[in-house]
Design a protein around this nucleic acid. Structure first.
Lengths: 137, 137
DNA sequence: ATTAATCCTATCAGTTTAGTAGGGATTACA
DNA sequence: TGTAATCCCTACTAAACTGATAGGATTAAT
């Protein structure tokens, strides 16, 4: 299941991409328009900023803005920040690899084989999708 | 993340497919060979039996066996029983559809569009994979 | 100064997950 | 007919995760 965090994060990014002008976009504005609990959203945008996907401006007239153009913001990056590993098991994760403790030999594991295929097919989607694609109306 | 339940379930099915002979396979045998907590596994095999994927024989010399040949046991079925919906959000689920409460119009939702693609690509993998594929050594 | 915004930490209730416990029912076989 | 082996079923629990809230610190424009 996709977490609310990720769902809200994607919606927020889409909103920012769509309404982006000279001024940064306020959390409260996004929250209201997308029906997201404001304080929860605050934390999500913070993570996106720390990950370098969003930039922010503090104080009055502050808010969030994209660091790169939507066409350059890949879903692989966004998803890894919000949802964590793309792979369904750590032993097939490219960026978060971990050995299973219950598997003597990874390459003989039936689950491993299947999950590599799932990972690759999901990865293909995320690699070929950018925030610009999401933001088309 | 793939749950332990699903992981153990897939391993158990693979084991049964590989060692299948005249006699049904005992839970304890699978548990030992695959390093799965026996009592936990018991429950998993029970769900697989209730879903019609496994059959069982009680009492001495009892155990579990496949209801269909491994080549006919599709991953779509197994995954839906063990892990639940294949889609990452209920609003794109084929078998477990549910409307989002925060989405006025599904077809304008950026997350929806992306998740349909992910669902389709994952589904393609699961539809093209059977237990026979997992069981090849 | 005042106001409006992000930033940061802590907290919390509810749910899910992984696993355990204990016995009931059924069957093979001596 | 008794006993051991096996599946069947329900209930329980600890730990982790999720979604969300609270409260204030910091920063910047006017």
């Amino acid at each position: 299941m996709l977490s609310k965090k990720t769902k809200y994060g994607l919606k927020a990014l889409t909103f920012i991409a769509r309404t982006q002008g000279d001024e940064p976009v306020r959390v409260s504005e996004i929250a209201k328009s997308e029906s997201i609990p404001p304080k929860f959203l605050e934390g999500i945008l913070l993570t996106l900023r720390k990950a370098g996907i969003l930039g922010s401006k503090k104080g009055k007239h502050g808010g969030y803005y994209l660091r790169q153009s939507p066409a350059l913001t890949k879903m692989t990056d966004v998803m890894r920040v919000l949802e964590g590993p793309i792979a369904m098991v750590p032993c097939v994760s490219l960026n978060f690899y971990e050995k299973c403790d219950d598997c003597p030999d990874e390459h003989k594991c039936s689950v491993h084989k299947l999950m590599i295929e799932v990972r690759d097919s999901t990865l293909k989607v995320f690699r070929n999708t950018t925030l610009a694609d999401l933001s088309e109306e």
